[in-house]
Each structure stands twice: as C-alpha cells, then as structure tokens.
C-alpha cells in the first residue's frame, strides 16, 4: 500500500503535501504527504533518523519547508511565523521535552497558555487531574523532575492551550514501561473524552499503532506505508522492522 498520493479528504484538520525540508545539504524530508482529520489519533512511526522530528518541527516553521504546503484548518500556514502557528492552537510536546528547567512546574504549565489567552483554571484542573503527579510538584523546578514527570509536564503544557491539534514527539522515550503505559493511557483518554486530535510520533510502534486510528511509516524522509493502526500492526514488514523487541 504505497500511500504517497492519497487525495485529501474534505475536512482534514492538518494536510501536508509534498513537503521537503533540508538542513544545509542534508535533505531530511523528501516529499511528505500526510493528513490528520479532526478527532483522530494518527501515529507516525519510523527508525531513528527517518525525519519524524523534522516533520514535527517543519509544521511549526522551524526549520522552514523548502517546498510543499502545510494547511491547517483550511489555511496555508507554510510561511507563517512559528509563534503565530502556535496561536492557531497547534501545540507540540517536542523531542527532548524541552521543559524550562529553572521555572516551576506551575510556570511551565502557564507558558502553555501564551497561545491561548482565554485558557482558564479549568484547563489547569484538567491537566492536573490527568497527571496528579504534577499537582504534588507545582512549586518544584522543572529541571528537577524525573523523566516521566517531565514528559507529563511537556504534554500538560501543550494541553494548557486547549489545542485543536496535539503533536507529541516520542512521549514514551526513556520512560519505564509502566510510566509509558500511563502516558499512552492519558492520550487515549484525552482523545476519547475531550475529542483532542493527536499526531503522535513514536519509535515504540506497537503501543502507538494500537492506540492510533491511522498510522504512517516513514523511512529516510519518505512515507512508505499508511493504513489503519490495526492494518499496519498486522503487516509482516512492520512486525519485522519495528516490533522486534519493541513490545513491552
């Protein structure tokens, strides 16, 4: 199932066409087509260095796309400034989490409201109910949290903007299996009860595809496969390439 040229269904929240990105001479994205519909969880899987994080960052205009189009909710955002993209209420928990180390947990969460000035105490409550661990650590500095707590904080910070699209770059990376499971459970919960649309990047293909409605497989800057989460999980190529030992 080579999915490179799928027609964009009407009502796609995020639609990416022919996206190319380069770092100097290194071409990291070689023409990506991908879309995310409202209410979906979409998983993007692929080996280290495939270009997943580059795609996440290119959606935010950092780095800028060399060519191609990124359309969010009917608007072309390919050339818009990074902070203005955030103000369209696309939120990202980026690779490496990027918690502000010398801000308290509460301040880190408040930073999530910059793009959504009307964010309320209810959004804070929602995050703290989703991750009760953060409630116990509100005054602690971000840099002193454990890896799992930082991940919760990064997701929580993204949620504070009440995003229309939540982008998560490897939320399970470096976490103990039990903590990773909690994170995946939280993502499922958010999608089910609040209808949050999620674009999820994962190396942990098994969990991601189980969670996702649809998935894309990226190899070397190109999308090589797409399908529903279940379909992809059943495919032998995927099992061989991404699920060996990844099941925990």
């Amino acid at each position: 199932m080579s999915a490179a040229a799928q027609p964009a269904a009407a009502g796609a929240l995020l639609s990416i066409k022919g996206l190319r990105t380069a770092y100097g001479k290194i071409i990291a994205l070689k023409g990506i087509d991908l879309e995310v519909r409202e209410g979906e969880i979409v998983a993007l899987i692929g080996a280290n260095g495939a270009g997943k994080s580059t795609l996440m960052m290119t959606i935010f205009g950092n780095p800028r796309a060399q060519s191609g189009r990124i359309v969010f909710d009917g608007e072309d955002i390919t050339q818009i400034a990074t902070h203005d993209i955030a103000r369209r209420r696309i939120a990202q928990s980026p690779e490496g989490r990027r918690i502000f180390p010398r801000m308290s947990v509460l301040e880190n969460l408040k930073m999530g409201t910059v793009a959504a000035p009307r964010s309320s105490d209810r959004d804070l409550e929602r995050v703290l109910n989703l991750f009760p661990r953060l409630r116990e650590r509100l005054t602690q500095r971000g840099g002193t949290l454990s890896g799992g707590e930082q991940q919760m904080l990064a997701i929580g910070r993204a949620l504070m903007a009440h995003p229309r699209l939540l982008m998560l770059d490897e939320p399970s990376l470096g976490l103990a299996p039990l903590v990773a499971r909690q994170i995946f459970e939280a993502i499922r919960e958010l999608n089910r009860t609040d209808g949050v649309t999620v674009l999820l990047v994962e190396q942990n293909a098994f969990h991601a595809l189980k969670l996702a409605h649809r998935g894309y497989v990226m190899v070397n800057g190109l999308i090589t496969m797409t399908g529903s989460g279940h379909e992809l999980l059943e495919r032998p190529e995927i099992r061989a390439a991404y699920l060996e030992g990844g099941r925990h």
Binding site: F100, M103, E107
Partner: peptide, 21 residues
Amino acid sequence: GRDMRACEQDRTMAALLGVDT
C-alpha cells in the same frame, strides 16, 4: 518577565508555545 525567562532558557520552545521571541 516570564516570556523573557522562557526565551533565556529555551528560545525555540518559547516560540513553539506562541511567544513572539
């Protein structure tokens, strides 16, 4: 002040959150 500290600690992340750096 918070935006300034955010830019000081991680300018890219600040921009991702909507801060006009």
